[in-house]
């Protein structure tokens, strides 16, 4: 059976969901159910340890889903490392979605600080899933130091613009020996489907589901799109062609 394998751990679903933008915990839970997603990201900065019954964390059942903490809010490597350590101390996970975003408006990842933090965290025994620009060279450097995945963006977070970085994403996928999870900017199920068709191991979505007029239905729609894209990838897409193909232009060679 076709499984997603990250750092030796198997997952059935190739659709990951972020939790930061839902209108309520109830709607979030319903969406997660409909989406079939197993990996759910949670911002450590949103978790109130002193009030564990309050908020996102208490609504998630760790038996059913895999909680992946993220370092959202970190502007540099030091802060990201501190947050990852905190997540581990909290007993959340030693897996960390590494986000280092010095600019608070477009939340674009800082390549230098991400690499620096990733090196440190890998050495500390973390399973690191870094959020990066669609930068093929950075992706290889991260793979070399031992990150579990790379998570390049399709477009800036929250823009719903789809695969604006498709050419670079294809190079990353072609060259990668670790799963490539396409994160950020995926606005429509057709974008998610396309991401899977070009060979992404998984996709990550938040805004497009959580701010939809019908988040549950949208979650289900993304689930189907991801599955369809994955199957198309496995089946092998035929090349696009503008004209009819000559039937056997080299038949004469066999004569």
């Amino acid at each position: 059976m076709d499984k997603l394998l990250i750092a030796g751990r198997e997952f059935t679903s190739r659709f990951m969901i972020g939790t930061g933008k839902f209108p309520s915990d109830e709607i979030m839970k319903k969406c997660i159910n409909k989406s079939g997603a197993e990996i759910i990201t949670v911002a450590v900065r949103r978790v109130d340890l002193e009030n564990p019954n309050d908020g996102i964390l208490s609504s998630l059942d760790p038996k059913k889903i895999f909680i992946l903490p993220n370092t959202s809010g970190a502007q540099n490597a030091d802060e990201a490392i501190r947050i990852a350590m905190l997540a581990r101390e909290m007993g959340l996970s030693n897996w960390i979605k590494l986000e280092v975003t010095p600019d608070p408006r477009y939340l674009l990842p800082d390549p230098d600080e991400t690499l620096k933090a990733a090196k440190f965290l890998v050495n500390e025994g973390f399973t690191v899933l870094p959020y990066i620009n669609a930068d093929p060279v950075l992706a290889k450097k991260l793979e070399e130091i031992g990150t579990a995945t790379v998570m390049p963006l399709a477009a800036p977070i929250g823009t719903n613009k789809g695969l604006t970085t498709e050419d670079a994403l294809k190079i990353i996928i072609e060259q990668s020996n670790i799963p490539v999870v396409i994160d950020a900017g995926i606005g429509r199920p057709s974008d998610a489907c396309r991401a899977m068709e070009i060979g992404a191991a998984a996709v990550m979505v938040n805004t497009a589901v959580s701010t939809s007029a019908d988040p549950e239905l949208m979650a289900e729609s993304f689930k189907l799109a991801v599955e369809a894209g994955r199957k198309a990838f496995l089946a092998g897409l035929g090349p696009k062609s503008g004209r009819a193909r000559a039937s056997s232009p080299t038949a004469w060679l066999s004569k």
Partner: peptide, 9 residues
């Protein structure tokens, strides 16, 4: 949202 920040920041 009652919490959206971490002391580590």
């Amino acid at each position: 949202v009652f919490k959206d920040w971490e002391k580590a920041l």
